[in-house]
């Protein structure tokens, strides 16, 4: 979707407006979401990046376009799952407004982190809608990231899935003996 198209749609009242939209239009340029609205996709993208951020070792979930993977999987999923996602994302937006009187996208990094921390606090046995959404979101972010080129090649440094003449195995003295 072209940036211009998005802005036009917003102007026509088709999509909810948000200050994050211009930034989103850039990072998602050329991608037409199958299930999420533009603002939902932007929110999912921000959340995935908070779960697996870019760091000095490798790019994060945003660069790996994990939100697109989630969009496709939710689009292909059950209507129940779709309802949970829609309603859960709405609940996050509400929470941002309640806590910080702003859209999630307009919250600063510390505020966004507070919201995610709240979602993540019962990871072992999620109960509330937000906690359950976090569990889904985290699982799919990890799945999407480590099945992407960025995750496999850049983050994990994997160089396989190819033909080699011999398998070298471990020949590191330090791995095999008491010396370290």
């Amino acid at each position: 979707m072209e940036r211009r198209t998005i802005l036009k749609l917003v102007a026509a009242g088709v999509l909810p407006g948000s200050n994050g939209l211009v930034q989103i239009a850039c990072s998602q340029s050329g991608y037409k979401a199958e299930f999420f609205s533009t603002s939902e996709l932007a929110l999912v993208e921000s959340l995935t990046e908070l779960i697996l951020p870019s760091d000095d070792h490798s790019p994060g979930a945003r660069a790996a376009k994990v939100s697109r993977y989630i969009d496709v999987m939710v689009a292909d999923g059950t209507s129940n799952a779709q309802r949970s996602w829609r309603s859960g994302l709405e609940a996050i937006s509400q929470l941002a407004k309640e806590r910080f009187e702003a859209d999630f996208a307009d919250c600063d990094a510390a505020q966004q982190d507070k919201i995610v921390a709240e979602m993540a606090r019962n990871e072992e046995s999620p109960r509330t809608e937000l906690e359950q959404l976090f569990a889904h979101l985290k699982r799919m972010t990890i799945d999407g990231y480590y099945t992407s080129q960025v995750g496999i090649q850049e983050d994990l440094g994997y160089k396989g899935n190819t033909a080699v003449d011999e398998f070298p195995g471990c020949s590191h003295e330090a791995h095999m003996s008491d010396s370290e």
Partner: peptide, 13 residues
């Protein structure tokens, strides 16, 4: 792995 953010990413790697 538990958590999120940089610590999660480092741990998984």
């Amino acid at each position: 792995a538990p958590g999120y953010g940089r610590s999660l990413k480092k741990k998984l790697r």
